[in-house]
């Protein structure tokens, strides 16, 4: 993004410089450069929607089977694997959704 802004700013300043010297220039090339669409970073909207849908489905499935889930998950002993693995699974799916959501919203770490 910053590279692109830099390029566009350079184009503007170069244009000013050239017009001040009064040199002839190819208008066609400059027109192409001017009409070049601004670069926008690719936002992972598709990924966000995919993981969002998966996360929502997982939450829906869990809460529609609330009675069975709460009963099985609290039996103790080896059943401990159920809540621990479920928490892991949800953290991957919902975590991926959350990560993509923040990127789509433009909230990214400082580089």
């Amino acid at each position: 993004m910053s590279q692109n802004v830099q390029l566009q700013t350079q184009l503007t300043s170069q244009k000013k410089k050239r017009s001040s010297t009064g040199q002839q220039k190819s208008t066609a090339t400059e027109l192409d450069k001017r009409t070049q669409p601004a670069f926008t970073p690719k936002r992972p909207v598709g990924k966000m929607l995919l993981f969002g849908a998966l996360s929502l489905a997982a939450y829906g499935f869990l809460f529609f089977n609330e009675a069975l889930v709460t009963k099985t998950f609290t039996l103790g002993g080896w059943h401990a694997a159920f809540p621990v693995m479920t928490a892991f699974l949800f953290s991957f799916v919902h975590g991926a959704f959350a990560s993509n959501l923040l990127t789509v919203l433009g909230l990214e770490a400082k580089k």
Binding site: S55, Y59, T70, F73, L75, G76, A80, P83, H94
Partner: peptide
């Protein structure tokens, strides 16, 4: 440890996790 004791309410866990 808490899972072996069977005391985790997974609904609360996942709602907070959301």
């Amino acid at each position: 440890q808490w899972g072996i004791s069977g005391l985790i309410d997974i609904r609360m866990t996942l709602l907070i996790l959301a």
